[in-house]
Simulated assay, not measured.
Amino acid sequence: MIYGIGTDICDVRRIRASLDRHGERFARKVLSDAELATWRARSERWPERGVRYLATRFSAKEAFSKAIGLGMRMPMSWRLCEVGKLASGQPVIVLHGGLKDWFEARGLSAHISVTDESDYAASFCVVETRQVPP
């Protein structure tokens, strides 16, 4: 049964401007440790690829926060929500700490899709709950 649906579109230019203004501090605020390592590696090779990576993660976390109905308030936080990927490349939501506990206590599962194209990154998230038999 669907618990919630969230979508987000993010202007990549806005993310680039935040990086220009705040530097790595902005990336550290939004990304988990694992995501931060990937962002650094991508940014080193090709800075624009790093910006797009950050924009898709920002968008995915916004969509997820909307799907769970919390927005950006506890236990939801940028760094406790991670966008990983399966060996196939499919993105997955990986949760940590209190957010993971909150999510699992409700028997929820998430499905996430992310994309980016020139100036925009977009994400769509569906959160499901196990239907309790009557």
Rank of each mutant, 00 (worst) to 15 (best):
P134A: 11
I5T: 11
E117D: 15
R13G: 13
A121V: 06
P134R: 05
E117A: 12
R45H: 12
I93L: 10
D116P: 13
E62A: 10
A87P: 02
L70C: 08
G4R: 03
A122D: 10
E44F: 15
R52Y: 09
T56A: 15
T38F: 10
C10L: 14
A34W: 11
R42D: 05
C125V: 14
V132N: 12
V83A: 02
A110K: 01
E128K: 14
P134H: 05
A27P: 01
A37G: 10
E82P: 04
A34L: 12
A121E: 06
T115C: 15
K66G: 09
R13K: 13
A121G: 10
T115P: 11
E104A: 14
K85T: 08
R40Q: 14
E104M: 14
R79P: 11
R16A: 13
C10D: 09
M76E: 00
H96M: 02
G4P: 02
E48Y: 11
T56I: 13
P75E: 08
S113E: 11
A34R: 11
V83N: 00
V30H: 01
T129A: 15
R79F: 01
R57D: 06
W102E: 00
R14Q: 04
S109A: 15
D101I: 14
K100Y: 00
V127A: 02
R52T: 10
H96Y: 00
S43Q: 05
A60S: 08
L19Y: 03
T56E: 12
M74N: 12
S65R: 00
D8W: 02
G6D: 01
P134L: 10
P133Y: 10
G4A: 07
R16P: 02
A105E: 15
E24V: 09
L70Q: 08
G97H: 07
P134N: 08
G107P: 03
Y53S: 05
T56P: 08
V126G: 02
D33A: 15
Y120F: 15
I5Q: 03
E24T: 06
K61C: 03
T115M: 12
A34G: 12
S65E: 07
S118G: 10
R57Y: 07
G23W: 01
L108D: 03
V12I: 14
R106K: 10
P47N: 04
S118H: 12
V30E: 01
L19E: 04
A67R: 02
H22P: 07
M74L: 13
A37D: 12
P47I: 05
S65H: 03
F58E: 09
R73T: 08
A41Y: 09
E24H: 09
R14C: 03
L108Y: 04
Q131F: 13
E24F: 09
L99E: 00
V132W: 12
R25H: 04
W102T: 00
G107V: 05
A121T: 05
